[in-house]
């Protein structure tokens, strides 16, 4: 499969957004992005961490690779 540099960059950008969201949920007590009283939302933080990893892996798949003969 041929790689796509723009797709890889888009996926990396997505990974950065997911990572920022994960950091936000790990560090801030919130109530406006999730229902309920202000608290650390571990579940959201863990899900965004997993999504960050998946986006990085997807970007690695999408990047153009050098061909070894």
């Amino acid at each position: 499969m041929r790689g796509s540099r723009p797709l890889a960059i888009a996926l990396l950008a997505l990974a950065v957004i997911f990572a920022l969201a994960a950091i936000f949920y790990f560090t801030q007590k919130t109530s406006f992005l999730a229902s309920g009283r202000p608290a650390i939302h571990w579940k959201h933080a863990i899900v965004f961490t997993v999504l960050t990893l998946l986006a990085v892996v997807a970007a690695n798949f999408a990047r153009p690779k050098s061909i070894n003969v």
Binding site: M1, V57, N60, F61, R63, K65
Partner: peptide
Amino acid sequence: IRGFIRAAVRGR
């Protein structure tokens, strides 16, 4: 799990 780690690192 081994397969996922290898594929994720190599990107293929």
